[in-house]
Each structure stands twice: as structure tokens, then as C-alpha cells.
Write a protein that binds this DNA or RNA. Structure first.
Length: 565
RNA sequence: UGUCCUGUGGUGUAAUUGGCAACACGUCUGACUCUGAAUCAGAAGAGUCCAGGUUCGACCCCUGGCAGGACAACCA
């Protein structure tokens, strides 16, 4: 899973900090040489590229150390979790190329054990039922710089606690009336150690356990224990859980269960991209995008529809590395990852997006022929396809300039250019309408320069793509740009939010013309429109009406040089 | 005026544990090219947050600062 075709298996790479920890743990025989990781999504939203980093990390680690990895849904909050999300998550993880085999778990699988363990803690006088309201608990917790106050219920006796806890479970109380709390230290400098809540009452059905429970464990009282139950050796999570680690360890110690080890890494941030589930949900709900799978979304499903391949995402995850410092990865690296993989895979096809009619005046009327076009120069074995050529063609408007600057190599009055796979032509005349807009070009061709002919190798300054006009089939093309105008979308002025930075031009729908190469089109088929970019067939495509999404443009030195002026 | 974490080219990650900063993306040249792509060759760009200290030698160890982040849901 770690080889990227084309990149000769690399020189030993140095270990990242997690691999170093694992290596050390193996050396000191902490786990009997065993490595077992897990990816623990909460099914309350769609997976995004940041999750992809975590998946590749967790599963990559297991593979690297010949270990195992689990998929575990962290479903302890029935209020926000839905099956729709668990289904999409499984689909996305599988699509990324990871198979958890039979090791699919849910935190809710452990509700019974968790309950027994809670009783155990009560018996050890390490947990108690507290009648304070959420507001009161919050008020008594203190602040990071001021210690908290102990709950008046903190010293209830064991039997009373046991009784109350079981009655909580039986549904005798209303939501918020009681909680079970760990009895630790209200003056700890770590807020999470100030008698954290372990169970709260929620009278709501759960997507898996139905109405069996009306008390649900909190993250802190479920996560580490789930890790432990599954024998997870290294529990990898993001930085914000760093302060939870003492609590994670506390529960494991008090419960005397398998000591999983929590390791935190910095989550992925991408420039011009928003990663918060809450904000992504907002974009969906408010209709700023068409859905979770809008190709402009950083979700896995969005990237997939955009034309990204699993390999390109894994390559990306591999390139960004893992560390503990906060980071912002340049989207250019993501785009590079797409090109890297697509260059090798995408079938080449000539498409014209902004057509300019060109008539070859010395080409016989009513004649046409076919020329051979390479399907993919990176995969010569795929051979060639026949492309129709005729007297009237379309070229890209941007490939002609009436008054070209010195560095412009393409077509201009009196200039010569090669039509890729066909002939060299010369522009003889520019036709305009009454407003002065260029409506067509009259050119002549040199029959001896047909590609493949012995005398065809005359040098011209550039080669452009084209489409035979009579053979042109119209297609829909969706051109995407970054969703946000600012590198940091959250950088909005006073009283504004990230939505004020939305790019109004992030989606442009236009038409394109293709003569051949897209017969038997299937959704998600990948193409390179030569000299333009990588495109992917959208599921919206119909046999008579293909729709293409632009994944990413080709690198374009000319465009870059003109932009810099 | 708490606790914890983190500071290395524009961005990200390294430096085999103390031996004089490397790789990738990006940028810029040039070669090649029937994709201004790809490929190939090369360049610029940091002296490692700051100040002391230990050492023959510090990105790495120590001390003190400074800066950024996390933590006060019955979210995860």
C-alpha cells in the first residue's frame, strides 16, 4: 500500500515520531511486538481529506509494522449520529483502499462492559452520581487558573451510588437530572481531571442499540476503554486530545485493563480550505455547495467526484508527513498529487472548451480523413485511436492572438503551428464580425507535414489541439476553482465569518467539444484533455449528454508567466 | 496570573540521537518535446524563535525569556 508506481521504491526514509515511538515500544517489548491501530470516526458527518490523513496514518502504521487495524465507530452520542454517516464512512475508507476485514466495531458494542466497569469504579469509590445541573457543574469546575469546588454529592456512599446509577439506567430520571462522575481531583491544573462526567442521561434511540439505553458514556469514558478492549497498542489521535491523556491513562489504570497508549499528532490544515465538520455541514445545509459530494468539497466523496484517485490521496498523505506542530499544507501539494497519478493513468483526448472556427482553405471540401492519436504517452502499450480531421475545425480561442507578444508561440497572422497528430497550418486571414470580434480563421495546410510522414518533422514553435467541426460532439464541462478566496478562509473581518470569503466563481459551467474518445463513457472515468487539464466523468453524465468535472488544470508555464505581469 | 504541547528556507517534513542543515511542494533558469504537460539538468531561498550556558563541537543537552496552539460541552 506504500508503493507509488513510478517512484522507484525509495531510499530508507527516516521514521516519523510515531514510528520512532512504536519502534521503541517494540524494542522494549511493551506489547509483545504487537502493533494494532484503529481509525475511530464519529458517524456524525462525512469524512474529509483530514480524516484521510488519519486513516492513512493509522492503517499505514499497522501495515508497516505488520500489525492490524480496526475500524471503530465512536457512537456514544445518539443525538448527532446517523446510519447515513456510518455507511458513507465505510464506503470512503474502502474506496481509499483499506480493508478492515472482520474488524469492524462500534463503541456501542461495549456499552454493557462499560456499565459494569463503571460499577467497579463506584465500588472503588472512584465514581459517584452527581445531581448537579450542567450549569452548576460547569460553574463549580473552576477555570484553568482557578481550581474547582467539590460537588456536595461527591461523598455519597457506595450503595447509594450503585442504586442511583442503576436507576439512571432504568430511566427513572430525566435528562440532565443526574450524571455519573469520576472522582479524581477538583483542584487539578488539568480541567479534564476535575471529576469529569462519565455518563449522562439521554432519552434517545441509538442507531445500533435502539432504546436499550438511556444513559450514554462520554467520549472520555468510552474511547480509551474501547481501545483497551480491542487490544489497540497505539491509539493515535489529534493534538486537542493531548490534555485528555492523563484521564485516558487514569481510567485504564483504575480499571486495570490493557494499557493502550495514546499518541497525538497535528491534524491537517489545507490552504484555501475549510476542514471543520460543522462548517462543512453549514455549506451543505445552506446550499453553498450541492452536497457533501460537491466536487469543491474537501470531503473524500467530493474529491472522488472531482476526479481524485485513492492513490493520489494516499500519495498526498505520504508527502505531508506527521508531526506535532500546527501546519497549513499548500493546496498546491494536493493538486500536484492529483497530477502525479493522473498523468500516468488518464486517457488523452482532444477537447476544445472555447472554440474558434478555423477553415483550411486548401483542404478539399467534403473530404475528411483520420489521424492517429496516442491514447496515453505514459502507457504506449495502449496504442492509438483514430481521430477525424476535416476542412473545418475548432481550435482553442486562447491559442490565437492577432497581435502576439514575442513570447507567445501559438497561432497568429502569418504564423505556422502544428495541429497535434495532423498537419502544420499557416494562418492566412482573420475574419471578424461588425463589432470586430474574431469569428473565424482562414488557414492553409501543408499536406507533406502530416504526422508520421517522412518530411513531417519541420520545426514549428508550437503544437495546438483541435476538433474536427463536423464531428464535434457537445459536452458539459464543469470548471472548479478553490471554494475560498483567502488562504485562511476564517480570516474574515469583524462580524463576518468564513462564508464571506466564499469564491463566487468557484464553479463555472460551460460547454466543450470532443470528437472521439469518450464512447462508452462511465462515471468517474479519467481523462486528460490535452493541453488543458485532467477531467473526470461526472455521475450526472447521460449517454447523450456527457458531463465532465475538471479535477485540476495542467501546469501551465505560459499562464504563469502572463499572470505574473 | 495555571497545566500541557509546539517553534528548522515561502509551505511541509528530515537531520540515524552532539559532528557543522537534507528531501518534497512551490518559485526561477536551461535541455528535450507533435501537450508551454511529462521528463531531465540546474539555481535561488533557512544557519534552525531569542539570550545565556555546557562542550573541541549544539537544530539536538541545560537555564531563562519570547511567540503560537490546546484545555473551563452532560460534543468527539
Amino acid at each position: 500500500m506504500n508503493e507509488f508506481p513510478g517512484k522507484e521504491e525509495k531510499e530508507e526514509r527516516s521514521l516519523n515520531f510515531i514510528e520512532q515511538i512504536i519502534t521503541e515500544d517494540i524494542r522494549s517489548d511493551k506489547t509483545g511486538g504487537r502493533v494494532h491501530t484503529r481509525f475511530p470516526p464519529e458517524p456524525n458527518g462525512y469524512l474529509h481529506i483530514g480524516h484521510a490523513k488519519a486513516i492513512c496514518l493509522n492503517y499505514g502504521l499497522a501495515e508497516k509494522f505488520n500489525g492490524l487495524y480496526n475500524l471503530r465507530f465512536d457512537d456514544t452520542n445518539p443525538l448527532t449520529e446517523e446510519v447515513e454517516y456510518v455507511d458513507s464512512i465505510m464506503e470512503d475508507v474502502r474506496w481509499l483502499g483499506y480493508d478492515w476485514e472482520e474488524r469492524l466495531y462500534y463503541a456501542s458494542d461495549y456499552f454493557d462492559v462499560l456499565y459494569e466497569w463503571a460499577e467497579k469504579l463506584i465500588k472503588k469509590e472512584k465514581a459517584y452520581v452527581c445531581d448537579l445541573s450542567a450549569e452548576e457543574i460547569s460553574a463549580q469546575r473552576g477555570t484553568p487558573t482557578r481550581s474547582g469546588m467539590e460537588s456536595p454529592y461527591r461523598n455519597r456512599n457506595i450503595d447509594e451510588n450503585l442504586d442511583l446509577f442503576s436507576r439512571m439506567k432504568e430511566g427513572e430520571f430525566k435528562e440532565g437530572e443526574k450524571v455519573l462522575r469520576a472522582k479524581i481531583d477538583m483542584s487539578s491544573p488539568n480541567m479534564h481531571m476535575r471529576d469529569p462526567v462519565m455518563y449522562r442521561i439521554i432519552h434517545a434511540g441509538h442507531h445500533r442499540t435502539g432504546d436499550k439505553w438511556c444513559i450514554y458514556p462520554t467520549y472520555d469514558y468510552a474511547h480509551g476503554q474501547s481501545d483497551s478492549i480491542e487490544g489497540i497498542t497505539h491509539s493515535i489521535c489529534t493534538l486537542e486530545f493531548e490534555v485528555h491523556r492523563p484521564l485516558y491513562d487514569w481510567f485504564i489504570r483504575e480499571l486495570e485493563i490493557f494499557p493502550s497508549r495514546q499518541i497525538e499528532f497535528a491534524r491537517l490544515n489545507l490552504s484555501y480550505t475549510i476542514m471543520s465538520k460543522r462548517k462543512l455541514l453549514q455549506l451543505v445545509r445552506e446550499g453553498h455547495v450541492s452536497g457533501w459530494n460537491d466536487p469543491r468539497m474537501p470531503t473524500i466523496t467530493g474529491l472522488r467526484r472531482r476526479g481524485y484517485t485513492p492513490e493520489s490521496i494516499r500519495y498526498f498523505a505520504d508527502r505531508i508527513g506527521v508531526a506535532k506542530r500546527n501546519n497549513v499544507i499548500d493546496v498546491a501539494l494536493l493538486e500536484h498529487s492529483a497530477r502525479e497519478d493522473l498523468n500516468k493513468k488518464a486517457v488523452r483526448v482532444m477537447a476544445v472548451l472555447n472554440p474558434l472556427k478555423l477553415i483550411i482553405t486548401n483542404y478539399p471540401e467534403n473530404q475528411s480523413e483520420t489521424v492517429d492519436a496516442v491514447i496515453n504517452p505514459e502507457q504506449q502499450e495502449l496504442g492509438k485511436r483514430k481521430v477525424p480531421f476535416s476542412r473545418e475545425i475548432f481550435i482553442e480561442r486562447e491559442d490565437f492572438m492577432e497581435d502576439p507578444p514575442k513570447k507567445f508561440f501559438r497561432l497568429g497572422p502569418g504564423r505556422e503551428v502544428r495541429l497535434k497528430y495532423a498537419y502544420i497550418i499557416k494562418c492566412e486571414k482573420v475574419i471578424k464580425d461588425s463589432q470586430g470580434n474574431i469569428t473565424e480563421l482562414h488557414c492553409t495546410y501543408d499536406p507533406l507535414t502530416r504526422s508520421g510522414l517522412p518530411d513531417a518533422n519541420r520545426k514549428v514553435k508550437s503544437t495546438i489541439h483541435w476538433i474536427s467541426a463536423p464531428h464535434a460532439k457537445e459536452v458539459e464541462v464543469r470548471l472548479f476553482d478553490r471554494l475560498f478566496l483567502k488562504e485562511d478562509p476564517d480570516d474574515a473581518g469583524e462580524g463576518r465569518d468564513f462564508k464571506s470569503n466564499l469564491n463566487p466563481d468557484s464553479l463555472k459551467i460551460t460547454k466543450g467539444y470532443i470528437s472521439t474518445g469518450i464512447e462508452s463513457l462511465r462515471p468517474f472515468d479519467k481523462f486528460q484533455f490535452e493541453r488543458i487539464g485532467y477531467f473526470c466523468a461526472d455521475p450526472d453524465s447521460a449517454p447523450e449528454k456527457p458531463v465532465f468535472n475538471r479535477t485540476v488544470t495542467l501546469r501551465d508555464a505560459w499562464a504563469r508567466s502572463t499572470q505574473n505581469k
